[in-house]
């Protein structure tokens, strides 16, 4: 894997112009998570009506991989049924990113996933383990 393969135009674009970045006034549920080793923070906010994800936004700071991943996740989940987040996993996020991710950068790629899953499970009143 080379740096050029990892930092493709599309990833850099998602980093510099993140999608669904911001905050909503009355989220149905929100969850904030961070990577203690690097200080990256992502908060996911969801507006849910009749189990449908009407709106989803994220807020935070992080590297290109974590911001691109959060952008892609929000785009993917907008409009979906909240139950679908249960089956939304690491493999699906890596597929969305579509770039090689080294082991040490996995936690960057998956921070937003952790946050969105926790938000969903909080909403569904279930435990994440």
């Amino acid at each position: 894997m080379t740096a050029e393969e990892m930092y493709q135009e599309i990833i850099l674009d998602y980093y510099r112009n993140p999608k669904n970045f911001g905050t909503m006034q009355h989220p149905t549920v929100a969850f904030r998570d961070s990577n203690p080793s690097c200080g990256d923070i992502i908060e996911m906010q969801l507006e849910i009506k009749d189990e449908s994800i009407r709106d989803i936004k994220f807020l935070g700071k992080g590297c290109a991989i974590s911001i691109a991943s959060a952008s892609l996740i929000t785009e993917e989940l907008k409009g979906k049924n909240i139950q679908e987040i249960k089956n939304f996993n690491k493999e699906k996020v890596l597929k969305l990113l579509a770039i090689p991710i080294s082991g040490i950068r996995l936690k960057c790629a998956l921070l937003a996933l952790k946050a969105v899953k926790m938000a969903a499970y909080n909403y569904l009143g279930e435990n994440n383990d």
Binding site: T2, A3, M6, Y7, Y15, R16, S37, C38, G39, D40, G62, C63, A64, I65, S102, R105, C108
Partner: peptide, 30 residues
């Protein structure tokens, strides 16, 4: 520039160079 330090460290690492990135265990200062 606007590049996150992790991303810079990843590219630099490709050249065999180890630099640190993050808050260096001094989060409030950073």
């Amino acid at each position: 520039a606007d590049i996150h330090a992790h991303d810079l460290a990843t590219v630099v690492d490709e050249e065999g160079i180890a630099i640190r990135s993050g808050h260096h265990c001094a989060q409030p200062l950073v």
